[in-house]
Design a protein around this nucleic acid. Structure first.
Length: 219
DNA sequence: CCCCAGGCGTCCA
DNA sequence: TGGACGCATGGG
């Protein structure tokens, strides 16, 4: 089967099983940015505690974070882990984006220019940049994360390229409004909920993928 | 006690 | 270009 067909059928099976998932539902763009940085190598559960602390204080706002000290912020986001380095990066990223004119300004850039701008900031790497482009700026960008690489490798797509090749292949293959968002969301859902909670793979929408996935200990 | 989570930057070959 | 390592809390 061609790689493109494998991608299409996988996306279609996942969509049929999970439907349309609302990722980052109802959150403001500022909240999504903050969450995207806090969740780096960290479970979402831990991030939500930090987001609640910030919400209570009206700090889910990049212009407020930009005026906050690293020290004060680090105490509020402790539950997210790596809190000292994340506080410093969060403050500096918010300052840079605010100084550039906020998301309104980024929205006017081409996707390529916006990505270049984001990648230049300390604390924003490839996956975080993709998340911002996809979920905040609403661009046709596929987010490649650890689950994606692991699952793709198990269905026989891992040898094609590294992450950049996978990303462009998926972006050329999956078309349509929001399709890339949902493909990424369903891949993560499969990875973290189904395969972990049901090691016997019973009822997995992608039996073969699930079976291979749970037998792999590291990407 | 162990392992790992929706990574990133730095250093080193 | 690519691998090792530090960063740190909380859940299983």
């Amino acid at each position: 089967m061609r790689p493109e067909d494998l991608i299409i059928s996988t996306a279609s099976m996942l969509e049929k099983y999970y439907g349309y998932l609302n990722w980052w539902p109802g959150g403001s763009r500022d909240e999504i940015l903050i969450g995207a940085i806090l969740t780096q190598n960290t479970s979402w559960n831990n991030v939500e505690k930090s987001l609640s602390e910030l919400r209570k204080r009206g700090m889910l706002d990049i212009r407020v974070i930009a005026e906050t000290s690293d020290q004060v912020l680090s105490d509020l986001i402790r539950s997210s882990g790596f809190y000292r380095i994340k506080a410093a990066r969060l403050v500096s990223v918010c300052r840079s984006i605010a100084a550039a004119g906020g998301f309104e300004s980024l929205q006017k850039m081409t996707t390529w220019d916006a990505e270049k701008f984001l990648l230049a900031l300390k604390g924003i790497g490839e996956e975080t940049a993709e998340s911002i482009l996809c979920y905040i700026l609403d661009r046709e960008v596929f987010v490649v994360d650890k689950y994606t690489l692991r699952i793709f490798s198990r269905i026989g797509l891992g040898n094609i390229t590294q992450r950049n090749g996978i990303r462009s292949l998926v972006e050329m293959t999956i078309k349509g409004n929001g399709s890339l968002k949902n493909f990424h969301a369903t891949l993560v859902q499969l990875g973290k909920e189904h395969c972990r909670s049901r090691p016997d793979c019973d009822g997995c929408p992608l039996g073969r993928i699930c079976e291979c996935f749970q037998s792999v200990t590291s990407p």
